[in-house]
Amino acid sequence: MDNPTWQESVYAALKAARITILGYVPDAGHAHLINAAHADPDMQTVVLTTEEEGIALSAGAWLGGQRAVMLMQSSGVGNCINMLSLPLNCRMPFLTLVTMRGEWGEFNPWQVPMGAATQPVLTAAGVHVRRADQPDEVAEMVAASAALAFDSQIPVAVLLSQRLIGAKVFVK
């Protein structure tokens, strides 16, 4: 068998962290995880209309005794800010994987402002932020971030850099 891709290793890390509910606003950079979750009978998937729903979903999962993760892209971080008061006030874990746009070979200028603001905005809102730039560090970072989130009951975001996931290219 071939060596697993970093995306496969990330999914394995989420499973090892006993995550059973996965909420997402789709992004091309998350396509593997979304497909893997849908193919996994032990993972409940919830497609969200906006990212703040995923914070509330994760809070409910925790109240009910299960663990959730949310997948989004950096443009969605701005939609989350007030809802982040929920895990902070309630001393709940929150784990999100954020694919970055607007920072590496970005062709769409509309992605740039939120991409540049993603890390400082999350930090200002009380979220612990980790950032992965290399394929061989992602799965370990996700595993460590899940442990931090669920064991210390704090919100943690793992940013997956645009260089890592590959800049989106539009061709006519």
């Binding site: 509910i21 919830v46 729903e53 809070a59 109240l63 809802m83």
Partner: peptide, 19 residues
């Protein structure tokens, strides 16, 4: 809830899926 406006129904969904 005393805040997190707009999140009540999704918290309910999270609990419902977990239980």
């Amino acid at each position: 809830l005393w805040g997190a406006m707009g999140g009540t129904a999704m918290i309910g969904l999270g609990i419902a899926l977990a239980q």
